[in-house]
Design a protein around this nucleic acid. Structure first.
Length: 566
RNA sequence: CGGAGCGUAGCGCAGCCUGGUAGCGCGUUUGGUUCGGGACCAAAAGGUCGAGGGUUCAAAUCCCUCCGCUCCGACCA
């Protein structure tokens, strides 16, 4: 390909709405352009990278025994009503009507469609196990699309679904996908770490996320250097610490705290650590109020609470809901009577605490949890933070940021029950299939590669997914000898399966060097009157500083060697 | 959804407070000089100043409404 014949414009400045380096570089290097919030057009070079990632994904899915299908993005609402997710998915789904007023959705995922399909197609244990996959556009009405392809309203996803005769068989299918994911990300030049994860809206009982460690990542990851435990912050557990105080301070008593509303203000006003304050939060779980108590210096982990309560929806109660459901919801009397109260494990046995008095301008001192509250259960409900103890070995946990590029789930029978997906076993009995589902954000993976592989001059593509392996800079496009030699090299490289991008523009050398670095081709070959006078082409790897002059007849071999193809 | 900030040429920005000819850099076009790490000179094209309404002799500038983009988000609950 020649630069002059494709659609590629590099930018000196990044658009003002690009926040993170990979997003800026994708725009500056001309890989994509923005249409609107969370919507992007892939330009020729960006699309080539996307296709190369897809190829790796297909090869590894096929190798793992999965078969490719393609399902509709536009789906009837009735399928989603069947699984119950029409109601529980909330505003994240795009919903629309067709001309007959029938409700439809632009699929955010495909468990419903695939389960419906497989229920019709599979009737015998002889057809199992079966894993199907597709690479397809997904639609999600994100609250806040951001960071370019990291969180967009429309994105390319590889989703796979396994169907098995038993939990044990499903474990094997899960492991096969897990292993395939490890290979896929490695082949894309990514260092991705599998961590224990929350299952969220998808459901099921076990899942791992593949995380690309990067400071710009949207997810927190707790990991233990001692034993290797690693989990998403949404799910991570901790060894329960002792409460801030276990000695009673006597009877509870009011204290005036004028103007102090937040935990910070109350702690500062009373000159007490935040850990001595009891934070009381009221949530509506499937429409019913519950109160949660947690130490003032900790944050409640909503996914954990949701899992513990086994509820479908969980939102903070509004003022009106609290007034209607519980009346005063503070420590004005023994709490736990009006509505169920759950407390974080870190508060078990806590004494001499400070709590809201349910009166403006006042707090309660000397609160003993065991005496002044009726706690239905103590549970691990806090968000784990750096410095907490590892739940496995007690070591100190560290906190890092990560980008979720893949997620594998064991679904059990959540969907096969809803769709009554059965097969006939060898004894002629009708049994439910056991499912797993497996996703890779293909477009997000592309950007994650850039996030992990760039320097101050631009992108550093791994050869496996680079838009082109080699950029051939024509420094003297008017010199027939240069054009002739470069043309021959281009043809020979292409014949050996090397993708070559020729910069044939009428530009000064400096501009071409800068652009070659920005776009990030793994290998740069310079063809110019100067280099030919020195004895041939100058060959340089993107990440290295110095080039070497290679005789024209040896250049193809040199490039192949550098690419690891020879 | 709530709070804050920003919408001026393809990209990055100034001008707005204090109303009076719409500007700068990069990019683009033409001509010339250059030519190995984002050259220089000269000329030019390119704008409904996010949209609509209002105030005014006069609005990018002041006021109102809406739209879009970006950042932030629970704490006697």
């Amino acid at each position: 390909m020649r630069w002059s014949r494709t659609l590629l414009a590099t930018l000196r400045d990044a658009p003002q709405d690009a926040e993170i380096e990979s997003h800026k570089l994708m725009i500056r290097a001309g890989l994509m352009r923005k249409l609107g919030g969370g919507l992007y057009t892939f330009m020729p070079l960006g699309l080539r990278v996307l296709h190369k990632i897809e190829t790796i994904v297909r090869e590894e899915m096929d190798r793992a025994g999965a078969v490719e299908i393609l399902m509709p993005a536009l789906q009837p609402a009735e399928l989603w009503e069947k699984s119950g997710r029409w109601a529980t998915m909330g505003a994240g789904m795009f919903r629309l009507k067709d001309r007959k007023e029938a409700m439809m959705t632009l699929g955010p995922t495909h468990e419903e469609v695939v389960t419906d399909l497989i229920t019709r197609e599979i009737s015998s244990y002889r057809q199992l196990p079966l894993t199907v996959y597709q690479i397809q556009t997904k639609f999600r009405d994100e609250i806040r699309p951001r960071f370019g392809l990291m969180r967009s309203k429309e994105f390319l996803m590889k989703d796979a679904y396994s169907f098995d005769v038993s939990l044990e068989a499903a474990d094997a299918s899960y492991q096969a996908m897990f292993d395939a994911y490890v290979r896929i990300f490695a082949r894309c030049g990514l260092s991705a770490k599998p961590v224990e994860a929350d299952t969220g809206d998808i459901g099921g009982n076990c899942s791992h996320e593949f995380m690309v460690l990067a400071p710009s990542g949207e997810d927190g990851i707790l990991d233990c250097a001692a034993c290797g435990y690693a989990a998403n912050q949404e799910r991570a557990e901790r060894r329960t610490p002792a409460p801030a105080c276990v000695v009673s301070g006597g009877a509870a008593a009011d204290a005036a705290t004028p103007g102090s509303r937040t935990i910070e203000e109350v702690a500062a006003f009373l000159k007490m650590p935040q850990a001595r304050i009891v934070k009381a939060l009221v949530y509506m779980a499937d429409g019913k109020p519950v109160m949660v108590l947690i130490a003032g210096d900790r944050e409640l982990n909503e996914p954990k609470l949701k899992r513990f309560l086994a509820c479908k929806t969980l939102v903070m109660a509004t003022d009106a809901e609290m007034a209607a459901a519980a009346g005063p919801a503070g420590f004005a009397g023994p709490v736990g009577v009006q509505i169920p109260v759950y407390a974080d494990l870190g508060l078990k046995g806590a004494c001499d605490m400070i709590a809201g008095a349910n009166r403006d301008g006042f707090h309660l001192l000397h609160v003993d949890l065991g005496r002044d509250a009726v706690v239905a259960a103590y549970e691990d409900l806090a968000t784990v933070v750096a410095g907490d103890s590892c739940p496995r070995c007690g070591g100190e946990l560290g906190l890092r940021r990560g980008i979720e590029v893949g997620h594998v789930f064991k679904l059990g029978t959540k969907y096969t029950q809803a769709f009554d997906s059965r097969y006939l076993d060898e004894k002629g009995k009708n049994e439910l299939m056991v499912m797993g589902c497996y996703g890779i954000g293909v477009s997000r993976t592309l950007q994650a590669v850039i996030e992990q592989n760039h320097d101050e001059n631009g992108i550093l593509w791994p050869a496996s997914i680079a838009p082109y392996h080699v950029t051939l800079l024509l420094l003297d496009p008017g010199d027939p000898a240069v054009v002739e030699a470069a043309g021959r090299l281009e043809a020979e490289l292409e014949a050996r399966g090397v993708d070559v991008f020729v910069d044939d523009r009428e530009e000064r050398p400096g501009v071409k060097f800068k652009d070659a670095d920005l776009v990030g081709f793994p290998i740069r070959v310079v063809a110019g009157a100067k280099s030919l006078a020195k004895g041939g082409f100058e060959v340089k790897r993107r990440e290295e500083k110095d080039s070497l002059v290679v005789a024209p007849e040896a250049t193809v071999q040199t490039v192949l060697t550098l690419l690891g193809k020879a």
